[in-house]
């Protein structure tokens, strides 16, 4: 009898304690709306969110539409508003088609974070952007990467995504500036910038056209995962891996075969994991009042160091690009 009541009392005490804890720190619900499903890039990003939420005690869920079409995320955002989540993190499929629905989310007190890409030109419709790396440096880093592969000499070309892809365009500007201003790259000539629209077929056609139009081409930079894979495939099929060096931004899983067979020597990418990690710390800190969302403000994030809120409330992980090559590619799985 005594034992029974003791157990009961203990159970009651425990349940009250846990109830009190849950009440004291009402757990923040964060949802991440991806571009589309079946995109391994986001698995790593989601992992970053999940690990951070394990530490911070937030609830996390990942949802995504079937296609990356401009309006496909709208029903998902509305559903999350209806679920009364606290934070919507989103990798936007459109720079402006989401404005109205994001506005509604924010009116209801939901924190809106654009993750892994910004809604350039519509910044007032999100609270902050979490970017993977310092985008200002991506262009010059890529030129340096290709330069090191071709001894800083010869004709090079860029194969990008769409003509209006905001991130890629920013990097291309960076590449052009580096090529023009840095004497180290004086012997490298940019002969063409073409666009594969992030479609495998069109990217392949454009890469083939580059090889046939510019017989002296020494290298292709493709700052997009679809483009770099298509370029590598074309160079591999044409048996020109020795003459034309392909590099750019790609994911390890996608580029693994080309690294293994020597078609591609090295390529780069940031760690999407860090973005999820940073976004969670930022959201939780902001909601708890320990972080102020003002340009110039700084805050600490474990493993990433001191993070600064830049112009237009854009934040990056401060981590540089990771270079993947035959030595390290097997350490990554995304």
């Amino acid at each position: 009898m005594f034992r029974k009541s003791l157990v009961f009392g203990l159970a009651l005490g425990v349940s009250m304690a846990s109830g009190a804890a849950a009440f004291a720190q009402e757990s923040l619900s964060i949802v991440f709306v991806g571009k589309n499903t079946g995109n391994p890039y986001f698995d790593s990003l989601v992992q970053g969110f999940e690990d951070a939420c394990d530490v911070l005690g937030c609830e996390f869920e990942f949802v995504a539409p079937a296609t990356a079409e401009a309006t496909s995320q709208i029903p998902f955002i509305t559903a999350q508003i209806q679920r009364r989540v606290d934070v919507i993190a989103i990798s936007p499929n459109s720079p402006d088609a989401l404005n109205q629905v994001l506005d509604r989310a924010r009116q209801r007190g939901i924190l809106v974070l654009s993750v892994n890409g910004d809604i350039t030109g519509s910044e007032e419709f999100r609270d902050a952007a979490i970017l993977p790396t310092d985008f200002e440096k991506v262009g010059s880093d890529q030129v340096e990467m290709l330069g090191s592969l071709i001894n800083y000499e010869g004709e090079i070309a860029i194969l990008s995504a769409t003509t209006e892809a905001p991130d890629q365009n920013k990097w291309i500007v960076g590449m052009n500036e580096a090529l023009e201003n840095n004497p180290k790259y004086a012997k490298m000539t940019l002969v063409a910038t073409v666009y594969g629209d992030d479609q495998p077929e069109k990217s392949t056609t454009e890469a083939e056209a580059l090889l046939s139009t510019y017989p002296n081409l020494r290298g292709i930079i493709s700052p997009t995962t679809v483009g770099i894979a298509a370029s590598a495939q074309v160079v591999q099929s044409a048996n020109k891996a020795d003459q034309v060096k392909v590099t750019g931004l790609g994911t390890p899983n996608q580029m693994r075969p080309f690294i293994k067979d020597g078609t591609v020597e090295a390529f780069q990418l940031w760690s999407p994991y860090n973005e999820g990690w940073l976004a969670s710390y930022f959201a939780v800190g902001l909601k708890a009042g320990t972080i102020v969302n003002e340009v110039g403000a700084t805050f600490e994030v474990p493993n990433l160091g001191t993070i600064t809120i830049n112009e237009l409330n854009s934040i990056n992980t401060q981590a540089g690009l990771t270079t993947f090559n035959a030595d390290n590619i097997d350490d990554f799985n995304f």
């Binding site: 079409e69 401009a70 309006t71 402006d96 088609a97 404005n99 109205q100």
Partner: peptide, 13 residues
């Protein structure tokens, strides 16, 4: 009106 913008890929599919 709903999206406050138009693009050639509107209503794809």
């Amino acid at each position: 009106s709903r999206l406050a913008s138009v693009r050639y890929d509107l209503a794809t599919g």
